[in-house]
């Protein structure tokens, strides 16, 4: 998504400034900054899911308009995080957005989910039930590319190659194999690529943060070695059927000839992006 959020703050400031100049008083509001990456130290344990009767009582404390407003803020928060493909932590949501509305959290989430479904064609998916992390996934069938120029991130292609490689190799791939394969494709992880920038950082850091990839240490290796697996976001967003079709085209081979991969791609777990019509 394009950065649509730049001006929200400026507008808030303008309105504020106008209000201040109208009342001839001045006040400096100190805005706290929320770092992009979630802070591990402020954990989720302080938040307990309210019971339905608590929610009911909580709802009585707010007007419908207030609840709508809070829902809109939650939706915005999700959309902004989704721009950078960063999962939303429940703890962050409660602390920075819900605040006094925390005891009606389930109701607000229900409404936000309804809005994503009905208006945006998106779905909130919990990718980590222990730490309560959520991402947005597309509910609309993947179709041909839209006719207008879509500023797709060039790194998407890079990611697709890495995911394909992992999938074709049975789900886990040693780090070195990734770098060597990319080198054959004339992408050197050690050099700055003109389209992808720092390739190594994109793969080991950015994609991992966005939950497209997992980058884990292989136990009992000396020297230390790492391997890559599919991350939770890839599992829900990326169609294995499509990857197999892509591989088939690339190698001029029937996708069915990769028996194991074909079975996995077409097994019931294809809950995600269905293939083209």
């Amino acid at each position: 998504m394009e950065p649509t959020q730049l001006l929200g703050f400026i507008k808030a400031e303008m309105t504020q400034r106008k209000r201040v100049s109208n009342t001839q008083s001045s006040s400096q509001n100190k805005r706290q900054s929320v770092p992009l990456a979630s802070q591990e130290e402020d954990d989720d344990s302080t938040f307990t899911q309210p019971s339905s009767s608590q929610v009911q009582r909580g709802l009585e404390r707010f007007t419908p308009a207030q609840v709508d407003q809070k829902t809109a803020e939650v939706v915005q928060f999700f959309l902004v995080r989704d721009q950078k493909k960063i999962p939303v932590r429940r703890a962050d949501l409660v602390k920075h957005v819900l605040k006094d509305y925390r005891n009606i959290y389930p109701e607000i989430m229900k409404r936000a989910a309804r809005t994503f479904d009905q208006v945006f064609g998106l779905k909130i998916v919990e990718i980590d039930s222990k730490n309560h992390m959520y991402i947005l996934v597309n509910k609309l069938e993947t179709a041909e590319a839209p006719p207008i120029t879509n500023p797709t991130n060039p790194k998407t292609g890079l990611l697709f190659v890495v995911l394909s490689l992992i999938f074709m190799k049975g789900g886990a791939v040693r780090e070195n194999l990734i770098w060597n394969t990319l080198k054959k494709l004339r992408v050197d992880a050690g050099e700055k690529h003109e389209e992808f920038g720092d390739v190594k950082k994109a793969i080991t850091d950015e994609f991992v943060r966005q939950r497209y990839l997992e980058y884990v240490r292989i136990p009992h290796t000396e020297p230390v070695e790492f391997e890559f697996r599919w991350g939770q976001r890839a599992e829900v967003e990326v169609s294995k059927v499509k990857i197999l079709e892509f591989m088939g085209e690339l190698h001029d081979q029937d996708p069915q000839s990769w028996t194991q991969q074909f079975r996995e791609a077409h097994s019931g777990s294809s809950q995600s992006a269905p293939s083209n019509r």
Binding site: P3, T4, Q5, L6, L7, G8, F9, K11, A12, T15, R31, S33, V34, L36, A72, E73, Q76, F77, V80, R81, Q83, K84, I86, H96, V97
Partner: peptide, 15 residues
């Protein structure tokens, strides 16, 4: 597509 929200919420993950 314009955003009419005047809140800090949108700013938090601002670039």
């Amino acid at each position: 597509l314009v955003n009419m929200a005047e809140t800090d919420v949108t700013r938090m993950s601002s670039d």
